[in-house]
Design a binder for these strands. Structure first.
Length: 554
DNA sequence: TGCCCTTTGAAGAAG
DNA sequence: CTTCTTCAAAGGGCA
């Protein structure tokens, strides 16, 4: 795995994963997982959709295409992602997938063209233009441009965002934000396998898909690159995860998108650097590395530059410090999930407040099956790896203080009263508490945290993923029918969430949600009803995709 | 204009 | 080793 870097990447990731996963793994469980999730989604969709303005989501979504704006505004893209996702889903729904969580399923979202990591990149939120499917755009020139490594720099893309790339992105892809720089320049066209020179070694190597992280470097520039690398993946899987078009696969994360199995593959190959030979950085477009907010990246003194660093002009070493481009933290599993699902939730309900939406997402997160969560954990893991490779010297500490925020810990204090205050807009009636409350899973937060299988991925590096559409299940254990057992396990050692929820009810529950518009289903996946569902859970289990998973496990 | 709010997870800091 | 704090995304709300 780690080739060049000494394995930095892999190893790093591995360690992390192992650790975390372990913990979580034990806990895993959530009975309701699948069931609830499905229900949730289904319910939500149906019901929610009906109620609120779901316009967007369901039927609309398809129609959504309405007229795609040719332009690829960043904003649009985002929206697009949502739509995209929906659209895809719908297509798939037709078949079996109803469940949102479907593992492999493509939630394609359009990634932000801009890098998430870039602060500047910002897409403006306002535009809700949905999608317009910009997909078509994908191919566009941008790509072509990209190919030239040098010339076109990502910048171009970024500007215009040519957008496109993303159209086909993996659901997760949206996540991809990191920037472009890395990839851009150096990367060869997709079909070609891009060889990337290792900065350190100087040896050309092919980037592994895994390497490309969605977030990081992949931005526009990246696209070009991405495709290639991923390409191999695709075939293997055999499954078109997403509707990605041919060109489509540019997404960096396609790999991720794939199942765990895929990931494992990726991991195995993981190469440390993704970096292109040189990039100029963002400059032209002004879009820097995704992760990087500012222009410059901090380089390492040693000279080991992360790929990204290379990209940026090394010259300005001193400046670096001054400027210190703000390299954002890699997104964690939940964040990835949020990015992906937010649009859906928004579409389903009228609420637009992020706080409310996040609450819902939090609940949904808990309702996800392990496999699903594992997907995200895996992605997150890769992100971290990538990030570490790209920015070897970076530490989370670097960002401390950037936000001014102060987090009031008091939450607890205020909790009781709080909610009243908070409810600024009670849109609608919230759901009965019951619903909210009951989800077992919710209570303890994410028990699943653990990625299901980090180990799995690691373990079988090369293992080709079978074609399951679903992700391969990481832990065989999980697959077991026993899952329901896990339920009780909830104890999550970790700090944050679990602690709060020590009591049976989750914090959220305790307070009334402002989300009026939400349907109950949204909020609480695991509602009491759930339990019923749970029972049925077994049945579902079998029938569902999970079963497949299980097999794989076997 | 810019922070708050809200979520989970990761990582660093502090004890 | 455990606990606490900060940041990551996002976008309406609010001062």
């Amino acid at each position: 795995m780690p080739q060049l870097n000494g394995g930095g990447g892999d190893e790093l990731g591995a360690n992390d994963e192992l650790i975390s996963f372990k913990d979580e793994g034990e806990q895993e469980e959530k009975i309701s997982e699948n069931v609830s999730a499905e229900r949730d989604l289904d319910d939500v969709k149906s019901s929610l959709v009906n109620e609120s303005e779901n316009n967007s989501s369901s039927s609309d979504s398809e129609q959504t295409e309405r007229r795609p704006q040719p332009r690829a505004d960043l904003e649009s893209y985002e929206k697009a992602r949502e739509y995209f996702t929906e659209a895809l889903r719908r297509q798939q729904d037709g078949g079996f997938f109803k469940s949102p969580h479907y593992p492999g399923y493509p939630f394609l979202m359009i990634p932000d063209l801009t890098n998430p990591y870039l602060s500047s990149g910002a897409l403006s939120p306002s535009a809700r233009t949905y999608l317009q499917m910009k997909w078509p755009l994908l191919d566009v020139p941008g790509t072509a441009v990209l190919r030239d490594s040098r010339s076109p720099t990502p910048g171009q893309l970024s500007n215009k965002v040519p957008v496109v790339q993303h159209a086909h992105m993996h659901p997760l892809t949206p996540l991809i934000t990191y920037s472009n720089e890395h990839f851009s320049p150096g990367t060869p066209p997709a079909h070609l396998s891009p060889e990337i020179l290792d900065p350190k070694t100087g040896i050309p190597r092919t980037p592994h898909p895994s390497e490309l992280s969605p977030y990081y470097p992949l931005s526009p520039g990246a696209m070009g690159q991405i495709p290639h690398p991923l390409g191999w993946l695709v075939p293997q899987q055999g499954q078109p995860m997403y509707p990605i078009t041919a060109g489509g696969f540019r997404h960096p994360y396609p790999a991720l998108a794939m199942n765990a199995s895929m990931s494992s593959l990726v991991s195995s190959h993981f190469s440390p650097h993704i970096v292109p030979h040189h990039h100029h950085g963002l400059h032209q477009t002004g879009i820097p590395h995704p992760a990087i907010v500012s222009a410059a990246i901090k380089q390492e003194p040693n000279g080991e530059l992360s790929p990204a660093a290379n990209t940026k002009s090394p010259v300005s070493t001193k400046k670096e410090e001054d400027k210190k481009p703000h390299i954002k933290k890699p997104l964690n599993a939940f964040m990835l999930y949020m990015k992906e699902m937010r649009a859906k939730v928004v579409a389903e309900c009228t609420l637009k407040e992020s706080a409310a939406i996040n609450q819902i997402l939090g609940r949904r997160w808990h309702s996800l099956s392990r496999e699903e969560q594992a997907k995200y954990y895996e992605l997150a893991r890769k992100e971290r790896q990538l990030h570490s490779q790209l920015y070897p010297g970076w530490s989370a500490r670097d960002n401390y203080g950037k936000r001014k925020k102060r987090k009031r810990d008091n939450k607890t204090d205020s909790t009781p009263e709080d909610f009243s205050a908070r409810n600024k807009k009670p849109c609608v009636q919230y759901l009965p508490q019951e619903k909210m409350i009951d989800s077992p899973a919710s209570s303890h937060g994410s028990m699943l945290d653990s990625p299901a299988t980090p180990s799995a991925a690691l373990a079988s590096p090369a293992a080709p993923a079978p074609t399951h559409s679903e992700q391969a299940q990481p832990l065989s254990l999980t697959t077991k029918p026993d899952r329901h057992h896990h339920f009780p396990l909830l104890s999550k050692p970790s700090s944050s969430s679990s602690s709060s929820s020590s009591s049976s009810t989750p914090p959220l529950l305790s307070r009334p949600l402002p989300l009026a518009s939400l349907h109950a289903s949204l909020l609480s996946p695991p509602s009491p009803f759930h339990q019923a569902a749970l029972h049925s859970h077994h049945a579902l289990f079998q029938s569902q995709p999970l079963s497949l998973v299980t097999k794989s496990a076997d």
